[in-house]
Design a protein around this nucleic acid. Sequence first.
DNA 1: CACCAACGTTAGTAGCCGCTTTCGTAAGCG
DNA 2: CGCTTACGAAAGCGGCTACTAACGTTGGTG
Lengths: 113, 113
Amino acid sequence: MDDESTDEALRAIAEPRRRAILRLVAHQELPAGRIAEHFDVTRPAVSQHLQVLKDAGLLIERREGTKRLYRARHEGLAPLRQFLDEMWAESLDFARRIAEGERGLSDRQSEAG
Amino acid sequence: MDDESTDEALRAIAEPRRRAILRLVAHQELPAGRIAEHFDVTRPAVSQHLQVLKDAGLLIERREGTKRLYRARHEGLAPLRQFLDEMWAESLDFARRIAEGERGLSDRQSEAG
DNA sequence: CACCAACGTTAGTAGCCGCTTTCGTAAGCG
DNA sequence: CGCTTACGAAAGCGGCTACTAACGTTGGTG
């Protein structure tokens, strides 16, 4: 449940600016320059954010001439919802295993490290 | 939808170690030292993580003698789920406003900054 | 070809963050 | 009172990260 893709997506949306970008292109395709106009940082900064979001699978890039259109990829957010859901379900089972065989932890202390 | 508490909780669970801690105390009350045993970092490091999680409203601390018991506060995760849900719903309305009156953006460019 | 527009990319920098070490504090025990 | 246990707090350090400035690249236009 805590695979690398979830971690990448989580770190991506942990940044306020990236969340704002994500909302901008949530249901509307926009070019990079247009996105950058909404913020008071330089365009390269926005480009880097777009790259991070793209690597996290939260964005889709489409090239049209010299322009590059960006659009949110909603499936990319699904793992995060799944993570939150499993936070309830699986952890219950994990807690039960601790309660039943807690002495087992002394044998392998660094299982979560 | 993007208030400070959501941002705080989001940054808290963006850290892998904090997620592991959160799962450990998801349904089981544990003392700080017991939590630290599961990781290969020092106890103060874990204490700092516990502080961050507590400030984010994701943890509850209960003192019992010299020990401090920690337990997950599930309501703290609710804003995150709400954030993800609104990522779909509200952004649709926002996109519609852009599509209908996009020229309005030139009047107030930095509305999202 | 030259020229410009729209981007991404690459140093380089300031600030944040997770960690360790050291010290301080509160509770229980004799 | 001293001693130990179980912690948090403060200071300092190394690595990451978001940013700017300069450069490179691709595509369109004449």
